[in-house]
């Protein structure tokens, strides 16, 4: 076989180093038993960034409103648990994914008529509208004060949520993330995923070869929204609390920064970016509670200047240079 098709085929296969993140994730569980609350938040953020990678990195849809789907998932789980007493965690996640996926498909149908800066603004506005809706419906959402004391039944009927040390929440989140990752990985290496990359790289040519561009984009947007919804639902379950802060520019822009820092369109960018950003933030904030943002900002400036493909891109460049 000639080298080019061979290489194309090979990249679908699992490589040995792809086990590394998961081995690290498990090792962290034993190495840092007192930091699992932070670890759990980290895993949720990775899942959220992964969902954004699907639309931003692969389909090239630049959106600032992805927190909207995170919020839909988070509130679905919260409202089901508080108002209807539905606090089985796994079915809660499914409900969160479905709800966010439906919102994603519908809003994608409308919003994806635009692209570029217009899309950026419209997605931002959608999120703001949702934020106001959540505030006005404070009888259901609890508004700014949120829903106190959410509790969930045992995971798979076996593992109770660990309020103090977050042990079961960490492993639970790691499993959900692994599942989400398999979905995304399969998707981007499928023909569907390849056509998304095609749309990102050359929209005109994809139209010319007769690919159903709009339909593909909407479906990708819907799937990504569902995944973000699962991340949101997971957030509510492991935190046992949800309030209006799941929305807003800070979360939406934060996840984008994480993805760009790690390297978008690279699958593992979400992992590297989230770990680098959150661990740096966590350590800096602990050492300098008042001035940590300076250190974080300088790091981001350095990455933006010297590592355009994010940390993974930098790694690839170094390996290529050698």
């Amino acid at each position: 076989m000639s080298p080019a098709p061979d290489a194309l085929q090979r990249r679908h296969r699992f490589q040995w180093w792809e086990l590394l993140p998961w081995a690290t994730g498990l090792a962290m569980f034993f190495a840092f038993p007192n930091y699992l609350s932070f670890g759990t938040q980290l895993l949720v953020t990775i899942l959220f960034a992964l969902s954004l990678d699907l639309v931003l990195g692969y389909a090239g849809i630049v959106t600032l409103g992805h927190a909207a789907f995170f919020c839909v998932g988070a509130y679905t789980v919260g409202i089901l648990a508080q108002q209807l007493g539905w606090n089985e965690p796994l079915s809660g996640l499914v409900a969160a994914g479905l709800a966010a996926g439906i919102v994603g498909l519908i809003s994608g149908f409308v919003l994806l008529r635009t692209h570029g800066l217009t899309l950026l603004m419209v997605t931002l506005c959608t999120m703001t509208l949702l934020e106001q809706a959540a505030n006005m419906g404070h009888a259901w959402t609890g508004g700014f004060d949120g829903m106190p004391g959410l509790s969930f039944t045992m995971i798979l009927g076996l593992f109770p949520f660990d309020v103090l040390y977050f042990k079961s929440q960490y492993l639970y989140s790691l499993s959900v993330l692994a599942l989400g990752f398999v979905v995304v990985r399969t998707l981007v290496y499928s023909s569907f995923g390849q056509s998304l990359t095609g749309i990102r790289e050359n929209l005109l040519r994809m139209h010319a070869v007769g690919a159903p561009v709009r339909g593909r984009l909407i479906v990708a947007y819907g799937i990504s929204a569902a995944l973000a919804g699962v991340a949101g639902g997971l957030f509510t379950q492991v935190t046992g609390y949800v309030n209006l802060a799941v929305l807003g520019l800070e979360r939406a822009a934060g996840v984008m920064i994480i993805l760009i820092l790690g390297g978008h369109g690279r699958l593992y960018g979400a992992f590297v970016g989230a770990v680098a950003y959150l661990v740096l933030e966590h350590l800096l904030a602990k050492a300098y509670p008042t001035a940590w943002q300076l250190g974080l900002g300088l790091t981001l400036v350095a990455v933006a200047l010297f590592a355009r493909g994010g940390l993974i891109g930098l790694f690839e460049k170094l390996r290529g240079a050698r």
């Binding site: 609350s37 103090l164 957030f235 949800v242 309030n243 800070e250 008042t290």
Partner: peptide, 23 residues
């Protein structure tokens, strides 16, 4: 022992409290 609770999401403060207690 001072810890930053950052934005008012509740989650950040809860993580800080958890570590203050456990660690």
């Amino acid at each position: 022992i001072k810890r930053d609770s950052k934005n008012p999401s509740g989650a950040e403060a809860k993580t800080a409290v958890q570590e203050l207690i456990a660690q």
